[in-house]
């Protein structure tokens, strides 16, 4: 009876990679991230846009990959971190 086993379900986690200089600052990844883990950074990239960065609580990224799909510039992708269930 698996359902009753008291086991903490660990949400998956993703590592966010950003190719800053490709970003044109459209904001799609920030606005539509289901976990709202991204925000606009203050820094300028080579083209003069503000690339995204992670919010403080970065563990919130579940690695769904929406940002990776919606980015028009191939400037962001995620890598799912292996779950370690001990």
């Amino acid at each position: 009876m698996k359902y009753w086993v008291k086991e903490e379900l660990k949400p998956p986690h993703g590592k966010v990679y950003i190719i800053k200089d490709r970003c044109k600052g459209c904001g799609f990844c920030i606005d539509f991230c289901p976990q709202q883990v991204l925000q606009e950074s203050e820094e300028f990239n080579a083209k003069g846009y503000h690339p995204p960065k992670l919010v403080e609580n970065e563990k919130k990224c579940i690695g769904c990959g929406f940002c990776s799909l919606v980015c028009p510039e191939f400037a962001i992708y995620i890598e799912k971190e292996e779950e370690k269930n001990d």
Binding site: K24, C26, G27, K47, L69, V70, C71, P72, E73
Partner: peptide, 17 residues
């Protein structure tokens, strides 16, 4: 790359998909 499409253009997204 970068492509010629404007910031906020949906074309890059479609190509990405």
């Amino acid at each position: 790359i970068p492509h010629i499409w404007c910031p906020g253009c949906g074309l890059g997204t479609v190509l990405n998909c």
